[in-house]
């Protein structure tokens, strides 16, 4: 096991951040912590990167205990905190050189590992980090976290505040890093990114709701989901909530995700109901379950 977390609990003053959390990450796995803001993801990262001590429970990273062997962990992991935390007044190149130096290595020695990523920001290597765009900052931060060839890489919400194209590129990079044998623990509030992980833990209010592969998690969803659409979304949600057989109604992009209480649900009945209520341009289509639907269901 690359990361092992056993019954970890942590409170800050009177607020409980984590309640009896356990999970394991295998060697070379890309493991995702999926949950909204305030779920406790960052606290898990800080405990595993030896920055915080848990109130209860034990954890190991790369075989080292996070409390007793913290020095060893600090030599062998890469950490990219949630907030962009590189030196804004240093250039791209200076930042990378600095992190290489403090980890006792050089850019050249591990260039292999970061080449794919660094090549994209290399044209701007003389630019100060503070002047980079969000996507480039994040690539630089990843390079800095990788420069010492860590065994385990911790990425706390790496794609928050980054444009969709850069987000997609970033996940492609993570996939390539995974092939080089690096274990990764990634957190994200974006459910669509969860599908790209090997396994995920859905987490809310300091509790793990479920741990499994994204496919399995979706498979266990008990209902058929329909995309419902009409001209006035706000009214549509109101109408659907008034429908006596509704099971759940969630806005989902340009659609509303609808599930019905009945096993033998016929979309036509709902169509007529909405028509009677006065909805215009109604469309009802069956759709695939997403992780977000599962999450909403579990978090109920």
């Amino acid at each position: 096991m690359s990361i092992s977390v056993q019954n970890i609990s942590k409170s800050f003053k009177d607020k409980t951040a984590l309640k009896n959390i356990s999970f394991e990450v295998k060697e070379g796995e890309l493991f995702g912590l999926i949950g909204p803001d305030g779920a406790g993801k960052t606290t898990i990262f800080r405990i595993l990167t030896t920055l915080l001590i848990a109130d209860k429970g034990t954890a190991t990273v790369a075989g080292f205990n996070v409390v007793e062997d913290y020095k060893n962990i600090r030599n062998h992991v890469g950490y990219m905190p949630g907030k962009f935390s590189l030196y804004q007044d240093l250039t791209v190149e200076e930042n990378l050189t600095f992190f290489a130096t403090i980890f006792g290595t050089t850019i050249e020695k591990n260039y292999d590992l970061i080449k794919d990523i660094y090549i994209q920001i290399e044209p701007f290597k003389k630019r100060r980090a503070g002047k980079l765009s969000g996507g480039m900052k994040q690539k630089l931060a990843l390079c800095c976290a990788l420069i010492h060839k860590p065994k385990v890489l911790f990425l706390d919400e790496p794609t928050t505040g980054v444009d969709p194209v850069s987000r997609k590129e970033f996940w492609e990079m993570l996939k390539r890093l995974q092939q080089k044998g690096i274990t990764m623990l990634v957190s994200t509030p974006y459910m669509d990114e969860a599908a790209l992980c090997d396994r995920i833990a859905l987490i809310q209010d300091g509790r793990i709701l479920q741990i499994d592969t994204p496919q399995e998690i979706i498979k266990h969803y008990p209902k058929n989901i329909y995309d419902v659409k009409a001209d006035n979304m706000f009214k549509l949600i109101e109408f659907l909530n008034e429908y006596e057989y509704k099971y759940s109604v969630y806005p989902f992009g340009e659609f509303v995700h609808y599930t019905d209480k009945r096993e033998d649900f016929n979309p036509k009945e709902l169509y007529h109901f909405l028509e009677e209520m006065g909805a215009v341009n109604i469309s009802i289509q069956p759709t695939k379950t997403t992780i977000e639907d599962t999450f909403m269901e579990l978090a109920k």
């Binding site: 920055l51 950490y79 935390s85 804004q88 403090i102 980890f103 006792g104």
Partner: peptide, 13 residues
């Protein structure tokens, strides 16, 4: 304040 202390702590320094 900038969060770089977090990275420095999680380093062999």
């Amino acid at each position: 304040e900038l969060g770089t202390m977090e990275i420095l702590l999680v380093s062999p320094l």
